[in-house]
Design a protein around this nucleic acid. Structure first.
Length: 650
RNA sequence: GCCGCCUUAGCUCAGUCGGUCAGAGCGACGCACUCGUAAUGCGUAGGUCCCGAGUUCGAUUCUCGGAGGCGGCUCCA
């Protein structure tokens, strides 16, 4: 009997009992089939009217299947070598997969080598993945020695991306069957899987690292040991991924910070607290100064506030209710408790309420580079991106309800414009909404604020991603996510609408008709934190800052000592135009000076010898090694001054 | 905070199965060389081998505790 199907958009008739794999033909690049929109194993038997398409490892969903199947191979290898290991979950994730195990001893780095070796044996042995439907009773019996799997059966659960064991319409077990037809391993899993381990390229699989994790991500549960691995359709994919990791390591701001003498984290000061050295300090100053200039032009006013305050202020703001564990513990002084500030907003509110405000003053935009201290847990502190003390480019805008949409719209434009000047160009927006468990205020206020933010985000013509329940306790937020030079995304600016703090601080302004009205607050930080933004730029540029940001923009390199005077004259000219330039007068020979400047990633090297002096000229060497000899001094200065003024990368 | 790994000179890293084991390169400093596009040569200085306690005749090495770092988990207002 034949049945009718649609295969890759074309009608086709096949014998009943045919599998999806047979329908799609003898094509080893096909891993699974999409049948009526659902992913199925290739040995799935097709039914009349099915719409069938091939799914390959190049498709995101196919790649996930490949990685999920590799996770099964990992689990089999681990149980081969560690028979007592109990299985947790093992889903595909970005760039790879993991599998969680309960073992008596955490895995050691050497264990990974052994496990990987065993995995390769399994891959080469060509085991088939075979799906088998089981009843709940059968599953309980079969998985009696796997307590975590049993727990999952009880939970059933939805179609989660993380828990792949259950969630289908029926309970299924996948058996791994060797060439002799014997079942050598089984796992509760909703699938689908590649047809056999031969479909997983053994030269494109690698175990990466181990980690302790909490069962079902709950820190009250027991800890399991997770093994992370990566798998790709081809060897080249693995190579490219490993290269990406190397590139990221090369750009690591902690490494560059030391190499370029920008900042450090003295142990004596404490974890997560950075000091900026002169080279880093000048970069930071230039970053801040440009920001100040732009803020002035955009109608902001500058304020300054202290770093510590009595507890009452944070009681009033709600921080001590909602955020106490993120704050440094209090200091007792003069019968009062003082706290280091984790946020600037309460202080700015006090400036607002220092005197009566008129509607004519709104929007009032108070800006500060405000240093805050947050007690980050010891395990999360990480370089400049996650510090315990950092400086926010923080502003609070006080406006009327009517002004809010226009204010948010111009604010978003301002943010994106400014970030572009620092060299970031690829953005998307994220809208974080209320977490009912962790928030104050009425539903109506939240809805209104969220809606207005949504409208403002929409107006930007950028991708908008929703982050449900990700907001701070006092209001919804838009964050600007920027992609860096190697495609990583970083959260940059945050913009939050807040109806709550104005109430808590009883902020008011006098309206045109003489009534007292409550303003709305917009919290916003564009860099997020200066330290973090500094780190992002450092990694984005791999240390090679554009001319305007580079700690030293120009180094003059004399061919011999007698050429120093000539270069000093050129450097003086540059300095008089605000360019950070210096002459290398060290005892090193000229090629060594070039090497040093190159390693310091200096944008312009100006070299001068007898030839240049004779022509009243200098010779350029650029970061990419190119050179232009005998450039008249005035032209050279003009070129450099222009590169700085235009914020150009060179 | 939890788990694993790590901490030797300013930096990058050797090394000691407990006993001249304190080493290299770079950097710094000094001397000579006066030099045309990524390292001139020679020499000198520099370390409580992260900190504390314990075991031992003897600890940088072993054990325990602490600090700091790295990778994850959780967290990131």
């Amino acid at each position: 009997m034949s049945i009718d199907l649609i295969v890759s958009g074309e009608p086709r008739a096949v014998e009943s009992g045919t599998t999806a794999g047979q329908v799609l033909g003898d094509d080893r690049s096909v891993l699974v089939a999409r049948v009526n929109g659902e992913l199925r194993d290739l040995d799935h038997r097709v039914a009349p009217g099915d719409v069938i398409e091939p799914v390959r490892a190049e498709d995101p969903e196919g790649l996930a299947v490949l990685r999920h199947s590799t996770a099964h191979v990992l689990a089999q290898a681990v149980q081969d070598l560690f028979p007592e290991a109990k299985l947790g979950i093992g889903p595909p994730v970005k760039d790879g997969f993991y599998y969680d195990f309960q073992v008596a001893e955490p895995f050691h780095p050497e264990d990974l080598t052994r496990i990987e070796k065993r995995m390769l044996e399994i891959l080469k042995s060509g085991q088939r993945f075979h799906r088998r439907v089981v009843t709940e009773g059968e599953a309980h019996k079969e998985l009696a020695t796997e307590p975590f799997k049993i727990e999952l059966i009880g939970k059933k659960g939805g179609n989660s991306d993380e828990i792949m064991e259950t969630g289908g319409s029926e309970l299924t077990v996948y058996d791994n069957i060797d060439r002799k037809g014997a079942v050598c391993w089984s796992d509760l899993c909703r699938g689908p899987h590649v047809p056999s381990t031969k479909y997983i390229p053994s030269n494109a699989v690698k175990l990466m690292r181990t980690a302790a994790v909490y069962w079902l991500s709950d820190e009250n549960n027991e800890q399991l040991q997770r093994i992370y691995g990566t798998a790709w359709p081809h060897k080249d994919g693995l190579k490219a991924y490993l290269h990406f990791l190397e590139e990221a390591a090369r750009r690591d701001h902690r490494k560059l910070g030391t190499e370029l003498d920008l900042f450090s984290f003295p142990e004596e000061i404490g974890s997560g607290l950075a000091v900026f050295h002169p080279k880093g300090g000048i970069v930071r100053t230039v970053m801040e100064d440009y920001s100040r200039q732009r803020h002035l032009a955009a109608g902001y006013e500058f304020v300054n506030t202290p770093h510590v305050t009595k507890a009452a202020l944070f009681e009033k703001s709600g921080h001590l209710d909602w955020y106490a564990e993120g704050m440094y513990p209090p200091m007792d002084m003069d019968h009062a408790q003082y706290y280091l500030k984790p946020m600037n907003c309460p202080m700015h509110n006090l400036i607002y309420s220092a005197r009566g405000r008129s509607y004519r003053e709104l929007p009032l935009r108070l800006f500060e580079f405000g240093t805050v201290y947050r007690y980050e847990k010891s395990g999360v502190v990480q370089g400049l991106t996650r510090a315990r003390g950092f400086t926010q480019d923080d502003a609070h805008i006080y406006c009327t309800r009517e002004q809010m949409p226009a204010e948010l719209d111009s604010l978003l434009t301002f943010v994106l414009d400014l970030l572009k000047d620092y060299g970031l160009t690829d953005f998307y927006l994220e809208l974080s909404t209320r977490d009912p468990e962790k928030s104050i205020g009425t539903e109506q206020e939240w809805d209104e604020a969220t809606q207005i933010l949504f409208e403002a985000a929409k107006a930007q013509d950028l991708e908008l991603v929703m982050d449900e329940g990700g907001a701070a306790f006092y209001g919804p937020k838009i964050s600007v996510q920027a992609k860096d030079a190697i495609g990583r995304t970083w959260q940059m600016s945050t913009i939050q609408v807040d109806f709550q703090l104005p109430q808590r601080f009883d902020l008011e302004y006098q309206g045109p008709d003489g009534t007292r009205e409550r303003p709305i607050m917009i919290h916003r930080a564009l860099f997020g934190s200066i330290e973090r933004f500094f780190a992002v730029l450092l990694e984005h540029y791999a240390g090679a800052f554009p001319a305007w940001l580079a700690p030293v923009t120009v180094v003059g390199i004399p061919v011999a000592d007698q050429h120093i005077g000539h270069l000093q004259g050129v450097v003086d000219l540059l300095r008089s135009q605000g360019v950070r330039a210096e002459v290398d007068t060290s005892a090193d020979r000229m090629p060594k000076k070039i090497r040093n400047a190159q390693k310091q990633k200096v944008p312009f090297m100006l070299i001068a010898g007898d030839d240049d002096i004779a022509k009243e000229a200098v010779s350029f060497r650029y970061r990419n090694g190119e050179q232009r000899n005998g450039i008249p001094i005035a032209d050279a200065v003009a070129e450099i001054v222009a590169a700085v003024a235009e914020k150009r990368q060179v």
